[in-house]
Amino acid sequence: MNEHSDAHAGLHSEWGALRGEHPGRSTNPIVKVQDLAWLEFTKPNLDRAETFAQAFGFVTALRTADELHLRGTDPGAPCVLIRKAPRTTFGGVAFRAADDSDVLRLAEATGRRVEPLPESLGGIGVDLVDPAGGTVRVVSDMHALRALPAQTPQVFNFGTDVKRANATQRPPREPALVQRLGHIVLQRTRYLESLNWYLEHLGLIVSDFLYYAGQRERGPVMSFIRCDSGATATDHHTVAMALGPTNRYVHSAYQVCDLDTLAAGGEYLRELGYQRSWGIGRHIQGSQIFDYWRDPDGFLVEHFSDGDLFDSTLAPGWAPMTASGLAQWGPPATKDFLGISPSRESARELRAMITSLSEDNEFDFQRLRGLLKVTSS
């Protein structure tokens, strides 16, 4: 260890930043968003999307011929908005501002207009565009959906610490009810430029940086980024961002009650014939218990439970990126999860690698070698 690692030992990363490395936060962000609000998608078949969503654990908050809103059991806005369209696409991400004044401040700083949101949602929003061309909406004052009945965590006996007597454990094999939207993972060809944009515009702060083995001097290639709520601890990451050959959605994650709920819900999905991508396991960065699934349109979605929470005092950790380093326990990361199994998506990503190497971005031959080492590690 070096002198920079002491503050991180036993916390979340063996190593802290070296002199001159990225600080992981902006000194004067325009606003500090509070959390994710929702994600937006388009899909051609809303019936199929709703059937999977309900099996995954969402509750339908709104359904029309052209629109589907999905929610969790926690109060607040819907987690996912899906609009009917000829093609399946990821439409963008919405963040919840502290209040209307933050939305107005962002609009003034970026030259954008504040617009009323649809009546089904309520409130106002400003639409921004990140350096990759992705839509980022910042919203406030929406209608608040009431909390729904939630699943109850199991009561555990640990050795001589007996909490349950004359009672059995029988977690039902049923959908793992989504409580809330936890995070989204994005890939960017101009990773550092995009990272800085999110830190400066939205006040997000980095929990952990990853770098390619042997390339730390070139800087990070992935960051796990959380909301800055001062002394109030927030999710280890609300956004994770990685360097890659295309600008795309990677996956989104939704919190469920506990491990039993997650596992039983996974068995429910498996019996219905849905595709598990990877799981069950426990991550290293963020510590979440995870289980990844493919929806019928190919989007990767995650059930998670028991994630880390950090307040604003914790500085970023630094670690090398490896496939084996994605989990503390669980099965090895699958080819499907890593995006290297034979599929239309992997073929598209391979073509993008070739194209990206000839373009002006951060994904060059050295970075490609680093990425290939990750997928084989």
Rank of each mutant, 00 (worst) to 15 (best):
3 E>Q: 13
3 E>R: 12
8 H>P: 07
9 A>Y: 14
12 H>F: 14
14 E>C: 04
19 R>H: 10
30 I>Q: 04
30 I>N: 05
32 K>A: 14
32 K>L: 11
35 D>I: 00
39 L>G: 13
46 L>M: 06
49 A>Q: 14
50 E>C: 12
51 T>N: 09
51 T>D: 14
54 Q>A: 07
54 Q>R: 11
57 G>A: 02
62 L>T: 11
63 R>V: 11
65 A>G: 12
67 E>C: 13
68 L>V: 07
73 T>W: 03
74 D>R: 11
80 V>K: 05
81 L>G: 13
87 R>V: 12
91 G>Q: 09
93 V>N: 04
100 D>T: 06
101 S>Y: 01
108 E>L: 15
114 V>R: 06
114 V>Q: 05
116 P>V: 03
120 S>F: 12
121 L>P: 04
133 G>M: 07
143 H>Y: 13
147 A>S: 14
148 L>R: 12
149 P>L: 10
154 Q>T: 09
156 F>T: 04
158 F>W: 07
162 V>F: 15
163 K>W: 13
166 N>V: 13
172 P>N: 15
174 E>F: 04
178 V>P: 02
180 R>A: 13
186 L>A: 02
187 Q>E: 03
191 Y>H: 07
193 E>C: 01
193 E>F: 01
195 L>T: 03
202 L>S: 05
204 L>H: 01
204 L>M: 10
212 Y>N: 03
221 V>H: 00
222 M>K: 03
223 S>H: 02
225 I>M: 08
226 R>C: 04
234 T>Q: 12
238 T>V: 11
241 M>Q: 06
242 A>Y: 01
243 L>A: 12
246 T>P: 01
248 R>N: 11
249 Y>F: 10
255 Q>P: 02
274 Y>T: 01
276 R>N: 00
278 W>L: 03
278 W>I: 03
280 I>C: 04
281 G>Y: 06
281 G>E: 13
282 R>Q: 15
286 G>S: 09
286 G>V: 14
288 Q>H: 14
289 I>F: 06
293 W>R: 10
296 P>Q: 12
300 L>W: 03
302 E>M: 04
314 L>S: 15
316 P>E: 09
316 P>V: 04
320 P>D: 10
320 P>Y: 10
325 G>C: 09
330 G>A: 10
334 T>V: 00
339 G>T: 07
339 G>R: 08
341 S>Q: 08
344 R>N: 09
344 R>C: 00
350 L>R: 14
351 R>F: 12
353 M>T: 13
357 L>K: 01
358 S>I: 05
360 D>N: 11
360 D>F: 08
361 N>W: 02
363 F>T: 00
363 F>C: 00
363 F>S: 00
367 R>W: 01
371 L>Q: 15
372 L>H: 13
373 K>H: 12
375 T>Y: 05
377 S>D: 08
